[in-house]
Simulated assay, not measured.
Amino acid sequence: MRIGQLSERTGTSRRLLRYYEEQGLILSDRAANGYRDYHEVTVDRVMQIRGLLDAGLPTRIIKQILPCLDQPRVIHFPDATPEMLATLEHEKARMTERIECLTRNRDAIGEYLLEVRARIGTRR
């Protein structure tokens, strides 16, 4: 697929996709006319990258852990510095906190909807 299609499917600007490619986070083939051509799996890869960026991880660490998200998994240890491991531990803890908060909020909204629906149903 071309960069415009990838941009539409992922909600990511073309400029940002080119940046991801410059950083080695995604790959493209080049057609004879110089256009980028992305494989279908790049859609999922871009969504993973965006999620990791949203979680606060810098691209240099994302580049190191992206292979761990593939199947089969390929894990690279040579670049694992104590700083990187500490950053990952911190970000993992932040993600866990966010998940717990989102779960509480989802459950509260669910309870609210049940209550509102029950009250609306009794008025009829």
Rank of each mutant, 00 (worst) to 15 (best):
A80Q: 12
Y38L: 05
I75P: 00
Y35H: 14
R14Q: 14
I62P: 06
T122E: 15
S7C: 07
A86V: 08
E83F: 02
A80N: 09
A118C: 02
G4A: 07
N105Q: 15
R94Y: 00
L57Q: 07
E100V: 00
H76Q: 11
G11Q: 14
Y38S: 04
L25H: 04
I120F: 06
D107F: 00
M95T: 12
Y20H: 09
G110D: 15
G51M: 05
L52R: 03
I109Y: 10
R119P: 00
V41S: 14
A55D: 07
I65M: 08
D70E: 15
T59N: 05
R9L: 11
L17V: 08
P72Q: 09
E21I: 05
T81G: 07
Q23W: 02
G4K: 11
T59Y: 03
C68F: 03
P67S: 08
G11A: 10
T103S: 09
S28A: 14
V41D: 14
R123G: 01
L27N: 10
R14I: 15
S13G: 14
K92S: 09
T42E: 09
I61Y: 07
P72H: 06
Y19L: 12
E40D: 15
T59G: 02
L66F: 04
H76T: 10
E83G: 07
Y20L: 05
G11D: 13
E22A: 11
R119V: 02
M47W: 06
I61T: 14
D37K: 08
L6I: 13
M95G: 06
L52H: 02
R2M: 05
D70A: 08
E100H: 07
T10V: 02
R98L: 03
R106A: 08
D44S: 12
A31Y: 04
E97V: 01
G51Y: 02
A31N: 12
P67R: 13
G51K: 13
R50Y: 04
R18M: 08
D79F: 06
P82A: 10
Q23Y: 00
E89P: 00
S13E: 06
Q48M: 06
R2T: 10
R73I: 07
R45E: 11
E8I: 03
T96W: 00
M84E: 11
R2E: 11
R60Q: 11
Q71K: 12
D44P: 01
R14H: 04
R15E: 13
N105R: 13
S7G: 03
P67Y: 08
R73H: 01
M84N: 11
I99N: 01
R9T: 04
G24Q: 12
M47K: 14
Y20F: 11
R18I: 08
E111G: 02
L57T: 10
R15D: 12
R124P: 11
L57S: 06
E21T: 10
I75H: 09
P58S: 08
E21D: 15
T103R: 13
R50M: 04
D107R: 09
E89Q: 15
R98T: 04
T103V: 03
Y112E: 10
Q71P: 00
G51I: 01
T59E: 08
E100W: 00
E83S: 11
I26S: 03
G51E: 09
I109C: 07
R15W: 01
L53S: 06
L16S: 13
R106M: 09
I26P: 05
